[in-house]
Simulated assay, not measured.
Amino acid sequence: MKSGLRAVITGAAGGIGRALAGALASRASALLLVGRDATRLAALADELVRKAPDVQIRTVTADLNTAAGRAAIVQAAEALPGGPNLLVNNAGVSELAWFEDQSDAQIERIVQTNLVAPMLLTRALLPQLHRQTQARVVNIGSILGDIGHPGSVAYCASKFALRGFTEALRRELAGSRVQLQYLAPRATRTALNSDAQNALNSELGVASDTPESVAAELLKLLDGPRAERHLGWPEKLFVRINRMLPALVDSSLAKQLPVIRRHAQQGVKP
């Protein structure tokens, strides 16, 4: 998909979302930017119009976790000239917190936002995508969708499930006009990270990427046939080790557990 993209991007006002929109504008004819902050969406739209005046930039302020919000997105996508041929499910939330300390509401919010909402939006947009000659759905996951990590239990569960959803639907739609792909960034420098998360990453020496580097990897994913793309080294190696020899990762993380627990219990409070 090298030109003529008509993309719907959720979570467009966030760090990764802004970068994804900027990268896709270079090869799109239309972008629908979705988010909950109308002011930030408008500012992004103005920026993109200046950089890519030939691209139709539209926005919709909507909460993906509500039926009304998803309906608004579907309606706005239908109005795109030619209809959408790319859905990027990027909206998500993350909380560094000890699982036993999290409230029901916190856990439900993570799973609803990171898993249920993209599933429901994808299903709602599939009729439009099927009408295209070629269309794709790209789900933005995480390295923690492959490696269960202390302090991020609910987040990991949501991203593991998102990866499973992507794989299962890809197989269900095999032979159709709609392809499913999964992009798994490692730690990324965005405002989504809490102070506790940043402190943990610093103490453990966790490498992190810029949103722009994640966006560049999205373009590579779109240009190739691969179903999944995992970012970062040695993170990609850890994914392979975790799949084949999970006990080795258990041992490694056990050594870091006191540090992780200290930061996690200073993070989000119920």
Rank of each mutant, 00 (worst) to 15 (best):
L257V: 13
N242F: 02
N193P: 04
L120I: 03
G92R: 08
D63A: 02
A187C: 14
A21Y: 01
R163G: 13
N114L: 02
R70I: 12
V34E: 01
Y155K: 11
I107A: 14
L120D: 04
P246V: 05
Q132F: 05
P81I: 05
G205K: 00
A12W: 04
T113D: 12
G22H: 01
V116A: 15
A25Q: 06
R189M: 10
Q56L: 13
A161M: 02
A196S: 13
G151E: 01
A168P: 08
A161D: 08
H263V: 07
A216C: 13
A157L: 02
L32A: 10
P185C: 03
L96Y: 03
L41V: 07
I107P: 10
N85Y: 06
Q75L: 12
R58E: 15
Q128E: 13
R27P: 07
R58G: 07
W98D: 07
R186H: 05
L96K: 00
S208Q: 15
A191L: 09
N114S: 03
V214D: 00
N139L: 14
C156L: 08
E47S: 13
L219I: 14
T10A: 15
A124C: 03
K2S: 08
A187G: 08
L32N: 06
V249P: 11
Q132L: 08
A77R: 01
V74T: 10
Q181N: 03
E228C: 12
L183M: 04
E108A: 15
N242P: 12
G17M: 00
A68D: 13
L32Y: 10
P185S: 09
G15C: 06
R109C: 03
A97G: 12
A19G: 05
N139T: 04
L44Q: 12
G205Q: 02
A68G: 06
P211F: 07
A157E: 02
A72D: 10
G145N: 05
R70D: 09
R186C: 15
A154M: 11
L169W: 06
S194R: 11
R136L: 15
T10G: 03
R262F: 06
I107T: 14
H263A: 01
S152Y: 13
G141N: 01
A42W: 06
V153R: 12
L183N: 03
R70Y: 01
L125M: 02
A97L: 01
A21R: 01
G22K: 02
C156T: 15
L115G: 07
P81S: 11
D223M: 11
E217W: 08
D46Y: 08
R123P: 06
R40T: 03
T113N: 01
E172N: 02
I241E: 11
